[in-house]
Amino acid sequence: MFVVGSGGVHLVDELRSLGANFIDVEIKRFPDGEKYVRIAGSGERAIVLSSTFYPQDEKIIELLLLGDALRERGFEYLRLVVPYFAYSRQDRVTKEGEPISVRAIMRTLGLYYDELYVFDIHNPETLRYFPGKAVNLSPAKAIGNYFKEKLENGVILAPDHGALGRAKAVAEFLGLEYSHFEKRRVSPTEVKMYPVDVNVRGRDVLIVDDIISTGGTMIKAASLLKKLGAEKIYVSATHGVFSEGAIERISKAVEEIAVTNTIPTPVSKISIVPEIMKLEASHIV
Rank of each mutant, 00 (worst) to 15 (best):
F173P: 03
A104K: 15
G33S: 12
L11Q: 04
T214K: 09
G110I: 08
S138T: 14
N261M: 09
M277N: 07
I27W: 05
D204Q: 09
K232E: 12
I47K: 03
T265E: 02
R184I: 14
D57Q: 12
A140S: 15
K95H: 14
I60T: 03
Y194L: 15
A171F: 00
P131N: 07
F242Q: 03
F181A: 01
S236F: 11
L137C: 00
V267A: 04
S51W: 02
R45T: 04
M193W: 04
A142W: 00
I105W: 11
A46M: 12
I121L: 13
I121G: 03
E256G: 07
F181Q: 04
M218D: 01
F53Y: 14
P99E: 11
I247F: 01
G19Q: 07
V200Y: 06
G43T: 03
H161A: 14
L174P: 05
E72L: 14
K148R: 15
R203P: 06
I270R: 03
G33M: 06
H10N: 08
T52H: 01
R45K: 15
D204A: 09
P124W: 06
V285P: 13
D57E: 13
V241D: 06
D91T: 11
G229Q: 12
I121A: 06
Y84N: 06
K220T: 13
P131A: 08
Y146D: 07
E182Y: 10
L164F: 09
Y129S: 06
N261K: 11
